[in-house]
């Protein structure tokens, strides 16, 4: 059974200033599932709806963001949770940190700058489970941190004493202290150097392999997905363009946008000419009609300008939203 099922989800930002209302359709008709024990990658450019999607599935709904339609349901064992109708209290008490945890880009903002790392661990564990035996708790935290390959010294350091990569790994250690079933990692390595990025991603992979949980990895960097994710979803302008196992996304992409993303990546050892797509990603306050990619698509047809392409399954686990594929099935 799927860990998370998202069905036909639409989430819009609605603002009304001086009587002028504006709707930004950041996530529009998105359906997908997360399975237990996998790393699921979400890729897309800035303002394609990646972050909004995460906000909704982690229950972080604050105005002006509103869910227009659809459902988000989790299955933690026998325990089912409807994320869109859960109270904030239940969410905080039962789910955050324990079942769903979140790793974000700037780890500095997670760690309290005036407290040692071990105190931050204490704060989090104390609010969620309470600490009956301090000595045992320290021992457990040390074990946890060592198992993830971090030296025990980090626990007695202040955040500013650690390097950026080490801080990000501490943030990941914090996020996994309760062994959550879902770890949401939003651009976890974007601000880091390549060598450090590699270390942090290795750690995420190790944790996943150790505890067989699910990691939702969101990043715009396709090379990271190629090396880390099991399945990848490509978002464009608030919709799913394509979803497939990583091998298929990279070796046999069907959507013209995915094809462009893959083929335009420069690689060391290869200098063939790479080009950019014409135009720019659309403004989601006023998205194009039909397929949202049609203005930039090299294979645009008449139907693309008027009709929204459905997300169809072309093969087991490979879904594409493109009229070209619908007209010429494999």
């Amino acid at each position: 059974m799927a860990l998370l099922s998202v069905e036909n989800l639409s989430a819009y930002y609605r603002t009304e200033i001086y009587g002028i209302s504006r709707t930004v359709r950041a996530v529009d008709g998105v359906s997908f599932e997360l399975k237990p024990n996998e790393i699921y990658g979400v890729a897309g450019e800035s303002s394609c709806g990646k972050t909004t999607l995460i906000k909704v599935i982690s229950g972080n709904l604050k105005p002006p963001l509103k869910v227009n339609s659809g459902s988000v349901s989790y299955h933690f064992g026998i325990h089912a949770v409807d994320m869109l109708h859960i109270s904030q209290e239940e969410l905080r008490r039962d789910l955050r940190w324990k079942e769903i945890s979140y790793v974000m880009q700037g780890s500095m903002s997670v760690l309290n700058p005036v407290r040692k790392i071990i105190r931050t661990f204490e704060d989090i564990v104390d609010t969620h489970e309470g600490i009956p035996d301090k000595k045992r708790f320290f021992e457990q935290v040390r074990e946890h941190v060592n198992r993830l390959g971090l030296p025990s010294e980090v626990l007695t350091s202040y955040p500013h004493q650690l390097s950026g990569g080490m801080r990000q790994r501490v943030a990941i250690a914090l996020a996994t202290v309760f062994h959550p079933r879902l770890i949401i990692a939003d651009e976890p390595t974007t601000a880091l150097d390549v060598v450090v990025q590699r270390g942090v991603l290795q750690m995420i992979k190790d944790i996943q392999a150790m505890s067989n949980n699910t990691v939702l990895l969101v990043t715009h960097d396709m090379a990271v997905h190629a090396n880390v994710a099991d399945r990848v979803m490509i978002m464009y302008a608030g919709r799913i363009a394509e979803e497939a196992p990583t091998e298929i996304i990279f070796n046999a992409p069907l959507h013209p946008y995915t094809q462009h993303l893959i083929h335009s990546l420069p690689m060391i050892g290869e200098r063939s000419n790479k080009v950019s797509l014409r135009g720019a990603p659309p403004n989601l306050a006023n998205p194009p009609t039909g397929c949202r990619f049609h203005e930039r698509c090299p294979y645009v047809m008449d139907i693309c300008r008027t009709e929204v392409p459905e997300l169809v399954t072309v093969q087991d686990g490979h879904r594409v939203a493109c009229h070209l594929v619908k007209e010429n099935p494999l």
């Binding site: 590699r198 090379a223 990271v224 190629a226 090396n227 091998e247 060391i268």
Partner: peptide
């Protein structure tokens, strides 16, 4: 070596 290659073929050695 640390630059992730945008192709899933080198996954094992990169990890």
């Amino acid at each position: 070596e640390s630059v992730p290659e945008p192709a899933p073929k080198e996954r094992e050695s990169w990890a």
